[in-house]
Design a protein around this nucleic acid. Structure first.
Lengths: 349, 349
DNA sequence: CTGTTAGCGCATTCAT
DNA sequence: ATGAATGCGCTAACAG
């Protein structure tokens, strides 16, 4: 079941069979017909490894993420794979598990498998190996981190836009004490979200009470813990923005445990808009980061270079926007019961 | 940066370099030393495609799933990949999107990339291509569907065990009207869960009211719809088992919308124990299906054949067990308010 | 339009 | 213990 057998059966040379398969040059219709029949009859398909070896083109793209069980990634992966497949690329997916040692092995594997391009959608880094990729001319696209260079592109998420919309929304609702649960501050993207938030606060002249910012870990438990801390403040926030949806889920949980209600007592805004945030109790107002599109853009960034449109990487931008659901409402603590504790007492809990 | 350059630098033949890399036969320590130095100095690593071509071994395993954004799969994928990586296999992950046409393309890609084994963790099928795999001697492992044959293994989930435990639990709590929201009945695994449930009902002599079974779709919206239907019954169930956790999430949502409470008014049991089910309101009692382990077993099933331990496929079993959290409690509707409507009214809603 | 030829990078004989 | 030679399946360059 190789190209020789097909050639023999179709009474042509292997070169002609190759031409048919690749459409690389014109073949007489009659001959082509015969070859195609032989291919079908023998159920032949080419050996990709041999093709790669001789052509130098693997038709493989690498996609490096942190952890597929983090709900941020599946849609990104899908977006990337779908469009890669449509363009006849196979994708090798690797997880760093947030570990830079493992990141190194991910890149190494890309090198070994001769990936033609690599999308690095995580913040773990290994300068040396990435240099190695770059040196071999492999196009790379980063998310948020990374500078645009030769064959290196970057997708920049506009966190500020969505956060701006969220703070606008909250202020319009009358909130003045707005808290923020950040992600791990070791992450650049988490720091960006946090400083965007601070920026907004300044614009509304709300920037005095900086104790309303607590660090979480982008997971549910971290959000819960952080929210507990916020609730213990003498003057707790009436609304809280979170650095991602899982954090918001945790915050929701803490608030329920404290026998307070969302949004009546506290408004909550998430970030990312993962699918499940439509289904929390109450449905979560959140900032949508279109992850399927993110995946598509990552592919496009690579593909543009691979097609040879340009040698230079490009800077891509992806917008974020507020999606209003039911976890936010007007701040209406009654005068005389300004604090959350009495709100809970009022409700007899 | 190929084997020749290494050979030249180490002043040996390519064969010797190959021997070092593969440990295929003894080499004089001194020579070996020199070769290793050359390898390091040149930052050399072998071309996997060339190796595959000449050795016939790709060190690639295929993993076919339905949809990575279905929360059932990420952990399975992780389990499979982790152990595959440990054994120096790369994995090609493909999504069928629940579409059998696409399933065909998945298998085709496995064939083209010369996967040494394929784990088919979905129920879409393409007999012909799978025959093709089988004919080429590629080991296969199925989940639930598929019979054990030469080089074909099967992992059988013991749905009955977990469901049994759940019904026991509910009955011990005093429930007598137990409902069930199934998955799409076109799925064999969904039918299995449903019939296990019916079996249990019989054992408890509760099998008369078969209207307490409604079909869902294994997604949140389906669970919600199904639960609404259950709630409209004159004699609604006091407890409901669901075919998976997303269905349970939907049921929770419907119950909240109806201003009823879980577990006071209705107990809910999920299936799968996806991570988020710990964080629902209230935390979901569910039947745990250990998906990381499932992934590991799938790899082992393939690996056992690849190692040549045996030519025959094997039947694997994976257990499911109840995890009690807070969405189940004793059935304690007051006498005189036997129905849910009055329960809601009682609470002033 | 089609066939012949020469490798792609490597593992594996078969010699020595 | 090591080297020379062969070919895995295919594409590309060159001839015709």
């Amino acid at each position: 079941m190789n190209i020789k057998q097909v050639a023999k059966k179709a009474r042509v040379s292997t070169a002609t069979v190759s031409r048919i398969i690749n459409g690389s040059s014109a073949v007489r219709p009659k001959t082509a017909q015969r070859v195609r029949q032989a291919i079908r009859a023998l159920n032949y398909y080419p050996n990709t490894h041999a093709r790669t070896l001789v052509s130098g083109r693997s038709r493989i793209l690498g996609l490096i993420i942190s952890d597929i069980s983090n709900p941020f990634f599946p849609e990104l992966v899908k977006g990337f794979e779908d469009v890669a497949l449509q363009n006849n690329y196979e994708v090798i997916l690797t997880n760093t598990n947030y570990d830079s040692t493992r990141m190194a092995s991910c890149v190494q594997r890309m090198l070994e498998r001769k990936a033609e391009g690599v999308a690095i959608m995580t913040s773990e880094m290994n300068r040396q190996l990435i240099e190695e990729l770059s040196r071999r001319g492999v196009p790379i696209v980063f998310l948020d981190v990374g500078s645009v260079r030769n064959r290196i592109s970057n997708i920049c998420v506009d966190y500020a836009q969505g956060i701006h919309e969220a703070v606008d929304h909250l202020c319009a609702l009358g909130h003045r004490r707005i808290g923020f649960i950040s992600g791990p501050l070791s992450l650049k993207s988490a720091r960006t979200r946090r400083s965007s938030f601070l920026e907004c606060l300044k614009q509304y002249d709300l920037a005095k009470e900086d104790t309303l910012i607590v660090e979480g870990n982008h997971k549910i438990d971290g959000g819960e813990l952080a929210m507990y801390r916020l609730l213990q403040l003498k003057r707790a926030p009436t609304a809280v923005l979170t650095s991602n949806d899982l954090t918001a889920f945790g915050a929701l949980r803490a608030i329920h445990h404290a026998r307070l209600r969302v949004p009546e007592d506290i408004s909550i805004v998430g970030f990312d808009d993962i699918e499940l945030s439509q289904f929390t109790q109450p449905p979560l107002t959140t900032i949508r980061l279109p992850r399927t599109e993110l995946g598509r853009i990552a592919f496009d960034a690579l593909f543009r270079i691979l097609r040879g449109d340009s040698q230079k990487g490009a800077a891509y931008r992806i917008e974020t926007h507020l999606v209003v659901r039911s976890s936010t409402s007007a701040a209406y603590l009654l005068p005389g019961s300004q604090d959350l504790e009495s709100a809970a007492v009022r409700r007899g809990s």
